[in-house]
Simulated assay, not measured.
Amino acid sequence: MNNRIQERRRFLEEKGWNDWGIANLAGDASPRKYFRLSSGSKTAVLMDAPIGSCGPLDPFIDISEYLIEQGFSSPKIMAKDITGGFLIIEDLGDDLFSSLLVKQPELEYDIYQVALEILVALRQKVPPPHVPAYTPETQGELSALSLTWYARYISGVEVNEREVNQLRDFVAGAISSLNERQVFIHRDYHAENLLWLPERSDQERVGLIDFQDGSIGQSSYDLVSLLEDARRDISTTLKEDLLYRYSELTGDSLALIKKGVAISGIQRNLRILGVFARLSIRDSKSWYLDYIPRVWDYLMGDLETAGLPDLTSFIMNTLPPPNPENLDKLRSA
């Protein structure tokens, strides 16, 4: 038995949960592991997040408490070991948007409307204290992952630092040009981090998870995360309806919303190209490469909408397209 299993058992025993049944749950892109605890009809979720590989638990705890205080559905913290990297949290069920819509696609319009309304509601809230700013400079830095992981391992050529700096500056400048409200952003607001809770009411009908990287940033960021989901398609009609509804609810110009979504989408999709390549190459999670063509298509659409010819030219000249040959290079890297 490895040390981590022993530590997990010790935590459960110390907190009085050792007589509950335990079963694996699907994880996410991080090293965190999740387990469902059960006792009769009662359930909870054990999060196993070693501090060394996952970072401190405080951001997750603080943001979860903030979201609950603001009237949103986030897992309540039931027991914790900050030093050991363990939490027992409320079980919000299995109805992730991504899996629910495979079974009940007719729910898509309604549940996405509620997810959109949450973003509008979050705009009106005072952001939580001690949450980091997702600055234009940080976003520029992260966009360069597309060069250091995606392009680098397709081309087989060492990264040109001048090009990395150019991309950082292009993206940081584009983000800085947005005159958007700075709000709390989840940073991974998509169908695998949203749970449908129909027994609850209003904005509490969507459960929020995996928000530990939450930051303060431009309001279009989470909107594009919802609309340009790397793991699933939404129809053009639904996307247009959601953008129009967002404009109605916020009073913001539809044209400015679309431009903000495009610019935030460029940054986000550049980052995802690099992150998914890294997950395959470094962490042996090659299935993330299957999502890259969709991300590339989003990027191309965002470049067309954003009206940034210098950045567009730069990307087209430095990033290879994810054709089958190039994806095979990433798989074998």
Rank of each mutant, 00 (worst) to 15 (best):
Q182W: 07
S247E: 03
L311H: 04
R278A: 12
E180V: 01
P127E: 02
R181T: 10
S225L: 11
P322S: 04
L142K: 09
G27S: 15
A333Q: 09
H130C: 03
Q124N: 09
L330S: 03
S220V: 08
S38K: 06
Y298T: 09
Y246G: 02
W296R: 02
T135C: 02
S220L: 08
W17E: 01
L279S: 04
S201Y: 10
S143E: 00
S219D: 02
D110W: 01
N18L: 12
Q212W: 08
A306S: 10
I266H: 04
S39K: 15
T312D: 07
R10P: 00
S176Y: 04
E192A: 05
Q113K: 10
P324R: 12
S146V: 06
M316V: 05
V120N: 06
K258W: 01
R294F: 14
L308I: 12
S73H: 13
V126F: 01
V114H: 04
K259G: 03
I111S: 00
E158P: 07
G84F: 12
S253D: 11
P31C: 05
N2H: 14
L122G: 03
K258M: 06
R187E: 02
D48F: 14
P132N: 08
I68L: 12
I61F: 05
F72K: 15
G307R: 03
A23L: 02
V171S: 00
E13K: 15
V102W: 00
S284G: 09
F72Y: 15
F170C: 08
Y66K: 05
Y291H: 06
L116H: 13
I257T: 03
L25G: 01
I185H: 05
E199S: 08
K329Y: 11
V206D: 07
L101A: 03
M78L: 15
D297G: 09
S219I: 14
F211W: 07
L87V: 14
L12T: 11
L303N: 05
A306F: 02
L12R: 11
M1N: 08
